[in-house]
Nucleic acid binder design. Structure first.
Lengths: 339, 339
DNA sequence: TGAAAAAAAGTTAGCGCTAACACAAGCAAA
DNA sequence: TTTGCTTGTGTTAGCGCTAACTTTTTTTCA
């Protein structure tokens, strides 16, 4: 194993000069010497020891990305999550960082994971306010949260306009004549992305006098899509004609459940999703959904994180990206019959 | 920041005793002392410095997972890759390892990445023989390759019976009366997973006197699914009635292309895929495909890697998992017309 | 020309941890 | 008892690197 010492010996200079030639900004070592050292290092196949550097310099070039573990144990089965993770890895790796992935079940070991490796920064996916407060308080390093609704000022956050997304979904149904609607998502009781989407949806419906009964606001965490569908479509005066699902990935579960129950989409039930994953285009009928740009979100997240790392004093920043409606064929046009 | 030294001072013992109490196997420190030290450490909120440990002990508890970068820059857009990655993270994390994810474009920096962090082991996805030889030679640490066909003996490899998969796909077409077939996948000219699937497919067809003309073996790397479809379905005596695609993810591209070109599946063209991703069930018609168990593959991979880490002298191992046919509706039954 | 300033090096002292050995005390077998 | 073994603990010496300082050399300009 080649170390700085070996290179120093071969070049006839001190270790420090080698260190400066290889990692410095070029200001504390002369050009020719630096070039000579670099060529010797290359020739000897030098590979720096990141642990040693990290220990001595207190800077690891490690960035952690943390996401909540799912019941199935594999959060990356959700295409949104894996697409986002991939984009983050892509950007940060190209900037010379190393990425550690953590699935978090117990929030108390986040600090442990970050500190143990002296992570220079971290990206979090979809946490709640109380979690963010705790994490922010315990970890005085650059952190960027995504899809979070925190009342905390000093927190950088990249998200989308979830409320507007909910409004757009509502509009899509209303414009096609729907008046009785339903919502489904992983409701947690805490304010967050899902609650915002629901709020935008509900507010817009209310404004137009459409109906979203309490029992038509369903949490997918507790029941399966199939059970929910059965309940929703039971004969009733308020039987919904449309269902807004908080993500394409879950909307897909409803497509599958509908298939098993012989419920036709959109004839028996119209559906709208959220995210605009490639998946939505593959479904038949094509899924009408609220589009967000995952890659852009990941890039913004990295931008802010890198800025914080470069200048730890830089102010925290919140970026809310826009969303738009992707209209396809999963919402039935009820107007012809109504007019 | 609390260090071993602080704990040692508070407990009135040497640093070494603390180190042994916290990380040892319990054999070199007395029970009561160890318990007392552990409770002091907990109380003081001690978090070990992994860099220091790694430097001193030459053991990092880091495992790297490396995958080839894709042209779009995000290999995790392929559901197979992200599902596998997620399962690996899940297993290794539960064993106390930290996972670094690397997208590899330039193979020469794999060694750099592994050595720089003293990775204890690494998992590779889908490499070719020459790449494996180089990596294996440069890195004397536990490595497990997946989906690889290497002639090298001393290499641990977890894969599936790709050849059989190709045979099963051929059978599926033959059994339903198809005689003129086509294949499409990311052909690279090198032996590997895709080549094996093609080989099994071609051999089985040949044995039954079915036809797979040279110009019906297409590489998706060069042309789009749409272009390939156009070529394949141009009027000709050998116009194929069925297309075997080397992965569900790519098969999906053909579904989309077919939609744009008004080609009906399976009426105008039958399709079979490979992997059995959830996706395949969502497509209409449901995709007939060769099933592999991704999670099992990931678990096997981790098993072998962990064994190598525990016992570096343990022999290398190759595990070939079985595959089976998942019959759905993307292959048309031509027999009624033929008989 | 010479003194101050700047640039290019070298020296020292760790970062936090653990291998490897040293040492003492207790215990069983000879 | 002696010899050897086991067990618990302390000591020493780094792992490979860099921050912070010191020293030497070069440059600048009055």
């Amino acid at each position: 194993m080649v170390t700085l010492k070996d290179i120093a010996a071969k070049a006839g200079v001190s270790m420090m000069t080698v260190s400066r030639a290889l990692n410095g900004d070029g200001s504390r070592v002369s050009g020719p010497t630096a070039a000579r050292i670099r060529s010797i290092a290359e020739e000897m196949g030098y590979i720096p020891n990141s642990s040693a550097r990290s220990l001595a310099a207190r800077s690891s070039r490690i960035i952690a990305i943390l996401m909540r573990d799912t019941p199935d144990g594999n959060p990356l089965l959700d295409p949104y999550t894996s697409a986002f993770l991939g984009s983050v890895v892509q950007v940060l790796q190209s900037c010379g960082y190393y990425i550690m992935v953590h699935f978090v079940r117990d929030f108390s070991d986040i600090t442990f994971r970050l500190r143990s490796w002296s992570a220079e920064g971290a990206v979090f996916l979809g946490l709640f306010d109380d979690e963010i407060r705790q994490i922010r308080q315990d970890n005085p390093i650059p952190l960027v949260f995504t899809d979070s609704y925190s009342s905390l000022r000093q927190v950088s956050n990249v998200g989308i306009d979830d409320y507007k997304g909910g409004c757009l979904a509502a509009r899509a149904f209303l414009d096609l004549g729907h008046r009785n609607l339903a919502f489904c998502g992983p409701l947690s009781g805490k304010p967050g992305v899902i609650a915002q989407r629901l709020q935008g949806f509900a507010d817009t419906l209310a404004k137009q006098g459409a109906i979203l009964p309490q029992n038509c606001v369903c949490s997918i965490s507790e029941r399966s899509a199939e059970e929910i569908l059965k309940d929703l479509l039971a004969p009733s005066a308020l039987r919904p004609t449309g269902l807004f699902v908080s993500s394409d990935h879950i909307a897909w579960q409803f497509y599958k459940a509908a298939g098993r129950l012989n419920i036709r989409i959109p004839d028996d039930l119209s559906i709208a999703g959220f995210d605009d994953l490639p998946l939505g285009r593959a479904l038949i009928p094509g899924l009408t959904t609220v589009r967000q740009d995952i890659q852009k979100k990941a890039e913004k997240t990295c931008d802010i994180l890198l800025r914080h790392i470069k200048d730890p004093a830089s102010p925290s920043e919140t970026q809310i990206l826009d969303v738009e409606l992707a209209e396809r064929d999963s919402i039935k046009d009820l107007r012809s019959g109504a007019c």
